[in-house]
Nucleic acid binder design. Structure first.
Lengths: 353, 353
DNA sequence: AAAATTATTGCAAACGTTTGCAATAACCTC
DNA sequence: GAGGTTATTGCAAACGTTTGCAATAATTTT
């Protein structure tokens, strides 16, 4: 085949030896179809003002020629991008890292939810976006809206972006008062149920493992304390503040056992990774789980089910949460009012308790 | 403050009650600086042809006004996006899912490597991109290049995109002959070392667990068989073909133990998730690891170290691989010739063997 | 069959950058 | 201080869409 079009020639060599093919622009496609650029544009967008047969003709031609619109031009003209930015909001220093399986699961679920709505996903972080997220993403026309994963310890960047008018939603603790919608699990109830479960299983000397500086985790901690308050049998609980990593948990439990011996019989870990780190330390010192120590985690990551003993945990419904996040963001783009929303959690009772 | 600019007025209310601020365009910034648009553009790009003081003045002004370029316009004009698309290439049906921790780790490492080079990351998949990746990403000006994660079982989409001239690199098995560069671990050597290790630890009845239809895994399998060929003690090994998930592995080992009893004493699992699934099944039936069965995985995901017994595995250097992928892609954008590259693997000897 | 209505198309401007080229300003050199 | 060189700036076009409005073609009404 060989086409001549005003201004240039392009070849398609079917043999597969070489394919030199100048990119078709809409004007070229229009010429091939024998219509004006505007008609071609409308035809591709299935605008009913264009005659049915013309629409089909142009669309057919676009398909056979593998035509794709230049999104840069389109975005410039339309002032929207059909892109949603996901910002992983983690403290720069140590702490829970981007490698955290739970966070990645959240991102993956968001990705699916975003795609289902016909949007693309720009994966980002504060390293790229700097401090002024509104400027970078919205003014910069990189995305139409933001999904922030993680409230972080201080929320100044989120607050600023929201104040400047960036459409945004946050994965975090929905009980936090805020100007923007927050979607997340009922962390308080999760903490409560986890701890009640530990107590029901006979634990009386409880240990909380996690970083209460986090909004979400402080709610889980509140639930922990409430449950203990309801019980007469439980003596004064311990709290060990650690980074949200399995490694930190492993070290913390090791040290505790070394220093004070086994002075607890139930652990509520603020995340599954933390629980698994603790579990490893316990097993290495031949502390039986669940006989000597009952253990409950949070998240229900894939590993929870695969570990031995499998991990009792509070399941976070990331799939549903992702859908809610995207729905609320799109509603905002649509100028609707939206509110924070709590996602129900579920106790998954397994072998560790 | 209150600025008057030809055509509109905007206010910045410092009290924080409301911020109504029309987006500055380059022309506005130029006007504020008292220079032409072209000078402003060059100043922002730090073009040395512009006087030092002018450059600083404009840059300063841009900073105080939180100016950001409209990337849509910029991309249209420059014909490049400063975006790299990452395509997760998974079979639609069951199989290894996007939730797989190892894959997510790879994506996360790529994200970092991409950012370090000043590019952004568009996270995508065949659901969005359809069949014609070149058309969608490159012609559509969504990205300047593609990183494909996973060769998939058939590579028609990758081949097509490459043939059409899309700058692309693939995470996969670098020994596969291809028109495009593939970066990945030395899977053959990994399989070889893993299996030699099992044999060295005294295993004689070996079991391979995984899907040999995959390019990478078939290489690991080749290494497995080579190692066995070198040994006199090992009797005819078994191969169980399963999806690359812990669940499938758990079921497979359960069924094998039920049907044939413990007829193996060493397992080479094609991935850590598979190994962990197998481990769980073994522990539930009180088969001791490593005493009765030695177990080696592949990947070295975070869980490998946290499981109990911790998992001996072949570590894939995803961090380095991600850097190589990005470097090679950028080199391609730079019209340089690039080749496939093998990343060294490393045996991580832990408790399971 | 003319007039009025409706269906369909095309013209041209606009979106906000970047850059080749021309123009001017500043500086040297003799 | 005239002529030549260099440093600095601005004009205007171009990137490829989409869309308001005007224009034409097709259809209906009278």
């Amino acid at each position: 085949m060989c086409y001549f079009l005003k201004g240039f020639v392009f070849y398609i060599l079917d043999k597969g030896f070489a394919v030199v093919q100048k990119k078709l622009k809409l004007a070229d496609l229009a010429k091939l179809a024998g219509v004006s650029t505007s008609t071609a544009s409308r035809a591709l967008n299935n605008n009913p003002v264009i005659k049915q047969t013309t629409r089909e003709h142009v669309q057919q031609l676009a398909k056979t020629h593998n035509f794709s619109l230049n999104t840069a031009a389109s975005r410039l003209r339309l002032q929207k991008t059909k892109v949603i930015a996901v910002v992983i909001n983690l403290e720069a220093n140590t702490e829970q890292s981007i490698d955290d399986p739970f966070l990645l699961k959240v991102v993956s679920d968001i990705n699916q939810a975003v795609n289902r709505k016909g949007y693309e996903l720009l994966l980002s972080n504060s390293y790229m976006a700097g401090d002024d997220w509104h400027g970078y993403f919205i003014d910069g026309r990189r995305a139409d809206g933001l999904i922030v994963v993680g409230q972080g310890k201080q929320q100044s960047q989120i607050d600023l972006a929201a104040k400047l008018g960036a459409p945004l939603v946050v994965w975090g603790d929905p009980k936090t008062p805020s100007e923007y919608p927050i979607v997340g699990s009922d962390n308080y109830l999760g903490g409560l149920q986890a701890t009640e479960h530990l107590i029901a299983k006979g634990a009386t000397k409880l240990l909380f493992l996690g970083d209460t500086g986090h909004a979400e985790i402080s709610e889980r901690y509140r639930g922990f304390n409430t449950a203990i308050g309801h019980s007469r049998l439980v003596t004064k609980p311990q709290t060990i503040k650690i980074d949200i990593t399995s490694h930190a948990a492993y070290n913390a439990i090791n040290q505790l056992l070394r220093d004070k011996g086994l002075n607890f019989d139930g652990i509520f870990a603020c995340s599954d990774m933390v629980a698994l780190g603790a579990l490893k330390a316990l097993k290495e010192r031949y502390v039986s789980v669940p006989n000597d120590v009952r253990l409950v985690g949070f998240d229900d990551i894939a590993m929870a089910d695969v570990s031995h003993p499998s991990l009792t945990t509070i399941k976070q419904n990331t799939h549903l949460a992702a859908k809610m996040l995207v729905d609320k963001l799109l509603a905002q783009l649509n100028k609707e009012e939206v509110e924070s929303q709590e996602i129900a959690i579920e106790l998954c009772c397994r072998q560790s308790s």
